[in-house]
């Protein structure tokens, strides 16, 4: 197995096998709804769909989404080689029917049948930090295999072997990559506020943030395939705000922000959003939101952005870590 094969397998897992925390949340939600209610029947369908897609290794959702790879690599890694492997993996997974022909040339209006174009799929590289911070939840590993030639591909541009004691890397020489597949229906429901927001009566404080988040959930109704998950960034600039918000969606549903006031806001928004009565698919019920994951970043004195990445119930995120050629599946 090489990086292209490994990433193709990561796509297969991500597109067909819903993370266990999300599946557990759907099962719990189904029991919370009144038996035989529309909401209960819908949630049971989602659980059934999850089992079927896993068993068949077919896509959970036909919208196989925007593919974003979040990498954490040791110093000296040839990131261009990894990016080439990601592109080859997307091409291969598309041919296998694990990804829909899901890319449009925006100007020509024609289908890009390979699903590969400039900057597409997106790869974000960082050194020495897990892409999935903050780590408050349980990450489970599912078996491992030892690919023979993987370690050779982890060589830096100078041809030298990557040190297993890369300075500043908590994972010491391991490469970790998380893949997120985010569908267009949910992405269309993402939002960015600039506070103060007069119409919403939202000021520059956590109370104002709370109002933005509840309104985002309300606006999404059934359009973004509720029950959804919110990834949120408070502060930063507009561009980094969306990136940080999206990264929050990598966090397991069971974790909490390490910042006490943000953890409290996460709990409150989750509770209040589920009192809106929007329900699965916007057809009414108690289950409208599965989680709220909030991060705060510095901001300019003039700006106070609240950026929300709305994720559908098909919250597809899986990872893999390779240490000295040993493969560990994450998520």
């Amino acid at each position: 197995m090489n990086w292209t094969d490994l990433l193709t397998e990561l796509i297969r897992r991500t597109t067909s096998d819903l993370p266990s925390d999300v599946e557990a949340a759907l099962r719990t939600a189904a029991t919370a709804e009144a038996a035989q209610s529309q909401a209960c029947v819908l949630l049971q369908s989602l659980v059934a769909n999850t089992g079927l897609a896993r068993q068949q290794a077919t896509p959970l959702c036909q919208d196989t989404g925007t593919l974003t790879f979040f990498w954490q690599v040791p110093r000296g890694t040839d990131t261009q080689a990894l990016e080439r492997s990601a592109r080859a993996a997307v091409r291969s997974a598309t041919e296998k029917g694990w990804l829909r022909r899901n890319t449009i040339d925006t100007l020509a209006g024609t289908s890009v049948d390979t699903n590969v174009a400039e900057g597409w799929p997106a790869c974000h590289f960082e050194q020495g930090e897990s892409p999935r911070e903050p780590l408050g939840g349980q990450i489970t590993a599912h078996g491992d295999v030892r690919p023979p030639d993987l370690a050779d591909e982890l060589q830096g541009r100078d041809g030298g072997r990557v040190s297993s004691r890369a300075a500043g890397s908590p994972e010491r020489g391991s490469v970790e990559v998380w893949l997120m597949q985010k569908g267009g229906g949910s992405e269309n429901m993402s939002a960015q506020y600039s506070l103060p927001d007069e119409a919403l009566d939202a000021g520059r404080d956590l109370e104002g943030v709370r109002k933005c988040l509840l309104q985002t959930v309300w606006r999404a109704q059934g359009f973004g395939c509720a029950p959804g998950v919110l990834g949120v960034c408070i502060g930063s600039d507009r561009a980094e705000g969306f990136m940080t918000a999206k990264r929050q969606l990598l966090r397991p549903l069971c974790d909490a922000s390490p910042v006490p006031e943000l953890a409290a806001l996460e709990r409150r928004v989750l509770d209040e959003a589920n009192r809106l009565g929007i329900g699965p698919m916007g057809m009414g019920g108690k289950t409208t939101l599965l989680g709220a994951k909030i991060a705060a970043r510095p901001r300019l004195p003039a700006s106070y952005f609240v950026t929300v990445a709305y994720m559908c119930w098909v919250c597809r995120r899986r990872g893999v870590r390779v240490t000295e050629g040993v493969v560990e599946w994450l998520g």
């Binding site: 059934a48 769909n49 897609a53 068949q56 959970l60 059934g222 395939c225 698919m281 098909v314």
Partner: peptide, 9 residues
């Protein structure tokens, strides 16, 4: 209304 996201089903 069909079930959103239930593509395999």
């Amino acid at each position: 209304q069909a079930v959103g996201g239930a593509a395999a089903l």
